[in-house]
Design a protein around this nucleic acid. Structure first.
Length: 547
DNA sequence: CCTGGCCGCGCG
DNA sequence: AAAGCGCGCGGCCAGG
């Protein structure tokens, strides 16, 4: 282990490393908060509030710990062309990029663990499980701004060695399971994801603040009225349930929907059709409360003090099914409509939204090889209308609007194994179409005789699941449903290979801010629910027209 | 005081 | 036998 705090020594070590022709080099960085953010406990994780203190490079058991407090970052430029591996490479990429360093070949042991075990593991967990090494992370949060102790330097060095070792620990299993191509695609996406996080989303904080003030003002009288009339906290499902139990008729109470744990349900659908006068203002209150907490104060708390933008955390294959995940905040579910106008491109630029129409249904059609569905898509027909005609037993020309709505419920639900009762409930709650159970049973039968390929696909999936709980997603990713809390379930076995490879909206990056970002040209950057996938949409029919 | 489960609800 | 799936978040509430 070599601690390098002098430029000439660092230059020599880097020259030696560059010329040695190593096939892979372990990489890790330690960061120190900028002076203004000394008191911010999480500043060290934020590339706008902290910068790199040390860079660790590992080859075999040899590690160089380069102290960037003394050594100019530019000396590392040649290293950026070498093949590197880090644990959670998105982190390293962002901090390096802020210093003008952009790794060209960066592998990620977090992604390796994600593919090998089904979930992304911390470096400590990987080290324990794969290498039998117990590591102590207490120094991670120590003060990296001052002179470094021998312990700190040793700690820093170890992580780079571990990331490197994990390549050999996980690599063979990933190859053997046929996930090598999936890994490569994910690793290639690291710069796009990291750049996207660094860039953030421009957000109109001023307008947002004004809206929030109005929502809050609107909520106040509603809340006071409800507290007075109902004598309960309207935010409490428990208290609401108790109130309902007292005020419903015996008959209503018997039929009232309940939650998994037996509580009376208090969602919008449960209120539907009930005439208690308090329920209307209650619904209105709940809608406002959701807007204020999640999309009001919640979003406001994520506006970055340095950039004025929202920098969320994205994770490749962060979900169990392999979808892209976003949190703090989740930018994949801002309310549709006006709220989205708060995401605003700078003057002279535009935000571009691209969407693949009915992508999941198209993938299901391909996987199921359903002739009627494939035919509808090849011909550019309206699939929902076609389903509506089949379910109602009428010609397409006579399909009404509400029949088409119902058909959407059939297409989106029945594909994934929804039952008749589910269909009836789904039709009314999601599409506002009332449906008795017998009608749902008939609709379900009609659906499967119109799309026999879907029926065969369900049967096939059931048979396969009996002996093999692993679901293979086109493109390589494997999801083992046997590892899920409830084990293998048909509905998930049907959903995963369809949902996982479907990718959605992409937002084009813009120039100008933050400074380093203007040099970054990834092509598309992704905000919405992108899922990990093959070179898709191979073999998937094109949508009839762009929206 | 924090953690985790449950619920309801926003999106695809 | 019957079954839509996938998320994250905020509030409440119970347990420590």
């Amino acid at each position: 282990m070599h601690y390098l705090r002098e430029s000439e020594a660092a230059r020599r070590a880097i020259a030696e490393l560059t010329n040695a022709g190593h096939t892979l080099i372990g990489l890790d960085v330690e960061t120190a908060p900028l002076p203004a953010y000394r008191l911010d406990a999480k500043a060290g994780l934020d590339p706008y509030k902290a910068r790199i203190r040390t860079v660790q490079l590992a080859v075999g058991q040899t590690v160089w710990v380069i102290d960037l407090q003394q050594v100019p970052a530019d000396l590392l430029q040649p290293v950026m062309a070498l093949p590197l591996i880090a644990h959670n490479a998105v982190f390293e990429w962002r901090f390096l990029h802020r210093l003008g360093l952009t790794p060209a070949k960066l592998h990620d042991s977090l992604l390796l663990s994600r593919l090998a075990t089904g979930q992304g593991l911390s470096l400590a967990d990987c080290a324990r499980e794969q290498l039998g090494i117990e590591i102590d992370k207490t120094l991670q949060r120590s003060d990296w701004s001052r002179d470094l102790s021998a312990d700190q330097i040793a700690y820093a060095a170890l992580d780079a060695v571990l990331a490197l070792k994990l390549w050999d620990a996980y690599g063979p299993a990933i190859k053997a399971s046929g996930q090598a191509a999936a890994y490569r695609r994910m690793a290639q996406a690291v710069p796009a994801v990291a750049g996207h996080m660094l860039a953030g989303i421009p957000f109109d904080a001023t307008t947002h603040q004004a809206w929030l003030a109005r929502w809050t003002a609107d909520r106040l009288p509603l809340r006071e009225q409800l507290e007075h009339d109902l004598q309960i906290n309207p935010d409490s499902g428990q208290q609401l349930g108790a109130w309902l139990a007292k005020h419903l008729t015996a008959e209503e109470l018997k039929a009232w929907p309940r939650t998994a744990s037996g509580q009376l349900k208090t969602d919008e659908a449960a209120f539907d059709g009930c005439t208690l006068p308090a329920l209307a203002p209650l619904s209105q209150y709940k809608r406002l409360a959701k807007k204020i907490s999640t999309y009001g104060t919640g979003y406001a708390a994520h506006i970055h003090p340095v950039t004025g933008r929202i920098h969320a955390d994205f994770a490749l294959a962060g979900t169990r099914g392999g979808r892209f995940r976003c949190r703090n905040p989740n930018l994949q579910n801002p309310p549709a409509g006006d709220f989205r106008r708060l995401f605003k491109a700078p003057d002279g630029y535009r935000l571009v939204v691209a969407d693949y129409s009915q992508v999941e249904l198209r993938i299901a059609a391909v996987l199921a090889e359903d002739p009627a569905m494939l035919d509808a898509y090849t011909m550019g027909a309206d699939l929902h209308k076609r389903t509506a005609a089949a379910v109602a037993g009428i010609p397409e020309s006579e399909v009404t609007k509400s029949q088409r709505q119902l058909a959407k419920a059939c297409n989106f639900g029945l594909i994934y194994g929804m039952g008749a009762a589910g269909l009836a409930a789904y039709a009314s709650s999601s599409y506002g179409v009332a449906m008795p159970l017998e009608a749902a049973v008939k609709a379900r039968r009609a659906f499967f005789s119109a799309y026999p390929g879907i029926a065969r696909w369900h049967a096939r999936t059931k048979v396969k699941g009996a002996t093999d709980p692993a679901v293979r997603i086109r493109g390589g990713l494997i999801r083992d449903l046997g590892k899920e809390a409830y084990g293998w379930k048909l509905t998930e076995a049907l959903n995963t290979p369809v949902q996982a490879p479907a990718r959605k909206s992409c937002w084009r990056p813009w120039r100008g801010y933050p400074p380093r970002y203007r040099d970054w040209r990834p092509g598309w950057s992704i905000t919405s629910t992108m899922r990990f996938c093959s070179k898709s949409p191979t073999g998937i029919p094109k949508p009839p027209r762009s929206p």
